[in-house]
Simulated assay, not measured.
Amino acid sequence: MLLDTERLILRRFRPADAPALAAYRSDPAVARYQSWTPPLSETDAVALARSFATGDPSEPGWFQYAVELRADGCLVGDVGVRLDDNRMRADLGFTLAADRQGHGYATEAVRAVLADLFGRGLRRVSAECDARNAASARLLQRVGFRREGLRPAYTWIKGEWTDDVLFGLLAEHWTPGPGTLGG
Rank of each mutant, 00 (worst) to 15 (best):
L3H: 04
D4K: 03
E6Y: 01
R7Y: 02
R7G: 00
R7H: 00
R12C: 04
F13W: 00
P15A: 10
P19L: 00
P19F: 09
A23D: 09
A23W: 04
D27E: 01
D27L: 02
A31G: 07
R32I: 00
S35V: 02
W36Q: 03
W36H: 12
P39T: 00
L40Q: 04
S41P: 13
E42S: 00
E42D: 10
A45S: 04
V46H: 03
A47R: 09
R50Q: 07
F52G: 00
P60F: 01
W62C: 05
F63N: 08
Y65H: 14
E68Y: 07
G73Y: 15
G73D: 14
L75V: 08
L75G: 06
G77N: 12
D78H: 10
V79Q: 12
G80R: 11
L83C: 05
D84T: 05
N86E: 11
N86S: 15
N86R: 11
R89Q: 15
R89W: 14
A90T: 13
D91G: 14
G93N: 14
G93R: 08
F94I: 11
F94D: 05
T95C: 10
A97G: 06
R100G: 14
R100K: 10
Y105L: 02
Y105F: 09
A109R: 07
V110F: 03
A112E: 06
V113N: 03
L117G: 03
F118R: 00
G119K: 08
G119E: 08
G119C: 05
R124F: 01
S126R: 10
A127T: 01
C129K: 13
D130R: 05
R132F: 03
N133T: 01
N133L: 01
A134L: 11
S136Y: 03
A137V: 01
L139P: 04
L139C: 09
L139V: 10
L140Y: 09
R142N: 09
V143A: 02
R146M: 00
E148L: 11
E148Q: 13
G149R: 04
L150H: 03
P152E: 13
A153K: 15
Y154A: 10
T155M: 15
E160C: 06
E160R: 13
W161S: 14
W161P: 11
T162V: 03
V165Q: 03
V165Y: 06
F167V: 07
P176R: 02
P178C: 04
P178R: 11
P178W: 12
T180E: 15
T180P: 13
T180G: 14
L181P: 12
G183V: 11
